[in-house]
């Protein structure tokens, strides 16, 4: 699946997107975040703000970290939005 990052999350990670293949046991958004945090120090730092990090699965906001990611093509991580 493709992961895409925005705003300060993109800057802190030093990349706008990456392709990942999570292990079998990663089945939900919450488990994906935990797994990503275990992969790199930069990600662990980003996840210190996990209370504010928003997630979109296939370009739709999700409010519940228990949301399954099975079959998802694109998962986006971004801070609270400040448009308008």
């Amino acid at each position: 699946m493709k992961l895409v990052y925005f705003s300060w999350i993109r800057e802190k990670l030093g990349m706008a997107e990456e392709d990942v293949t999570p292990p079998e046991h990663v089945g939900t958004v919450g488990e994906l975040l935990d797994w990503l945090g275990s992969r790199s120090e930069a990600f662990e730092k980003v996840l210190e703000h996990d209370k504010v990090i928003r997630v979109a699965v296939d370009r739709v906001h999700i409010d519940d970290h228990a949301t399954p990611i099975d079959g998802a093509q694109e998962i986006a991580l971004f801070p609270p939005m400040t448009g308008g």
Binding site: F6, S7, A56, H61, A76, F78, P79, P80, M81, T82, G83, G84
Partner: peptide, 8 residues
């Protein structure tokens, strides 16, 4: 728009 549209 301010709280849900993905702009930063």
């Amino acid at each position: 728009l301010k709280t849900r549209a993905p702009f930063w």
